[in-house]
Nucleic acid binder design. Structure first.
Lengths: 337, 337
DNA sequence: CTGTTAGCGCGTTCAA
DNA sequence: TTGAACGCGCTAACAG
């Protein structure tokens, strides 16, 4: 009903400029075969009318919409957010817009959203999982390029980007060794997460290479402060001489730091603690602030966007790409910081 | 180039079903004038071809795209996220899709995104601010309905939804009074935030109505745990008999709880503490877990979506709508919980 | 009940 | 250098 109110069309511009639609189109798109004076007339008319070209019509014409879908399984999670930012960032620079969809972790909903996205003619899809563990690929051939971010696809033919959880564990361990710690404990989260095991694996590997044996078996539990506190106390109980703790997340590290301090240990003097994820709100509020591993999730989002862009352009990638992470040193391991 | 690969068109379906395009269209859209057997043929052809109607073409025809823009100033912030979820939620139920754009708080970028959104023929816009304080309306008449969420527009003719920060302060104070506290202190955050003052105002109002005079002037500082700790210690120093603290955020409350406990106060036995925002990661990890005010941001997003939907349908609203908030009782005020 | 025609806004032939 | 005509995929009006 109010369809016409939306905005000026190319026809309106052409009429105002006193030229044909075709000429107006050429002028605005920088085609060469237009006299300068004509081009200027057209531009003036366009700006007078606040003309905004209709991307729908353009898309219809080219079969490309200049949009991509961002299908997340879990908007709540703190992990999908930076990834979205990175993707939005990478695309925003160009002229692609991002459709946001949250499937709430429900496969049926996901299927529904997928259809909606496809009907909007998205040129490609980024699928962001809720956990770092691999996930089933999108069911029903998507007919547009897909990049899986955070949760890689279980199909190795698909294109996936994820962060390197083995390396992150390694970084944490190497840092503790580098500052002279040799009696190291490991506390991590929910054992059903592959990332928990990967991080432990990386840590153990690095410790072994440095000739350090952990004071105890890694402690698995949950991703919570409460578990971090309890596990830290248990660790202290059985190994009072522990001088370094690697934690599977900043929540755990936060709990561990609190418990250790309450047990009279100075941090990092007596015990140094490293977390994971660089969750600012937890790591900077802690006493002392937490040294942690930043998983570079925003970069992950950017990378996913670029891979998708390439795939849309005809250069698809395959397999899982693991992005490096980064040690962030704060007070919980270095008192001078 | 690969334009044709995208998917089957209505023409393909019609050909396979052996009918005309128009008939196929009518059949699929549930128009009455189609024989049942024909309709069935068409449906079979459609599903055999995995036909997905092209929303771009439909949009072109109707001048409505079935999309809305979500223009946030600050994807990083924890506040825009639940609002986005709520909006996505409310729209997702119907058949509207959401374009996500982050302006990074930059007006130029915002203008750019706005143009992109308009060119994609969005039917409406939700603008999510980074702070609860009012913001300038979108410059350059938007030609589509706009709803401001979180940050209301400074123009009262615009449609805005925000949470009621006066009420939240009131709720916090009433709760403390209800559990018998009478020597109450107030610690809040950055005084440049209007919300900080609103919450204090609500609290003072409720206290006055209950005949309670705060033990001291409200303490303004920053939205950090560190400030919460420091302010709590200062409060305790000057008013050792304080038995209740209202905090302007969960970060502050978390700091206050930690400091109070370290000063030997039992919580909630000696001092009860109420936070604001219900930031789960902070409030549930705390010892004891924090009683806090949930600002119902997700509901705010839903409401914004519904208001926008109505406006698109021709029933615009004006003015600022304040949404109620909700007390969440946990261990920091009630030991039996 | 079904098919033909027109046109949404745009870019691109091709002819003038 | 400009303009008329066509078609992208779809639906609504009308004709059969």
């Amino acid at each position: 009903m109010t369809a016409k109110a939306r905005g000026a069309t190319l026809g309106d511009v052409a009429k105002l400029a006193g030229v044909s639609i075709a000429t107006a189109s050429k002028a605005l798109n920088g085609r060469a075969q237009v006299r300068d004076s004509t081009r200027e007339k057209v531009f003036r008319a366009a700006s007078a009318l606040d003309f905004v070209p209709n991307a729908l019509a353009r898309g219809l014409l080219f079969g490309q919409s200049g949009t991509v879908g961002l299908l997340t399984s879990d908007l709540e999670g703190r992990f999908s957010l930076p990834i979205m930012m990175g993707a939005e960032d990478a695309f925003g620079a160009g002229s692609t817009s991002v459709f946001l969809c949250d499937a709430r972790g429900d496969p049926i909903r996901e299927q529904h959203q997928l259809k909606a996205l496809l009907s909007r003619q998205v040129d490609g899809l980024i699928v962001v999982g809720a956990r770092p563990d691999p996930r089933e690929p999108l069911s029903g051939d998507a007919s547009v390029p897909v990049v899986y971010a955070y949760s890689p696809s279980t199909d190795p033919q698909d294109c996936s980007v994820t962060s390197d959880n083995v390396e992150s564990g390694r970084l944490a361990a190497e840092h503790l060794v580098a500052i002279g710690r040799g009696r190291i404990g490991i506390i991590t989260g929910d054992p059903s997460y592959g990332a928990a095991h990967d991080r432990v694996e990386g840590a153990l590997e690095a410790l072994a290479r440095a000739g350090v044996t952990p004071v105890a078996e890694p402690l698995f539990g949950s991703w919570s402060e409460g578990w971090g506190r309890g596990a830290a106390r248990a660790l202290l109980d059985q190994h009072p001489d522990v001088d370094g703790v690697i934690c599977g997340s900043d929540q755990i590290a936060r709990g561990a730091v609190d418990a250790l301090r309450e047990e009279g240990r100075s941090i990092p003097g007596d015990v140094a603690v490293v977390g994971h994820d660089n969750w600012e709100i937890l790591s900077t509020g802690s006493r002392p602030p937490l040294t942690t591993i930043d998983m570079n999730l925003q970069e992950l989002g950017r990378r996913a966007a670029n891979l998708l862009f390439d795939a849309i352009g005809g250069n698809p990638s395959h397999g899982v790409e693991k992005l490096p992470c980064r040690l962030v040193v704060r007070g919980s391991t270095l008192s001078t910081v």
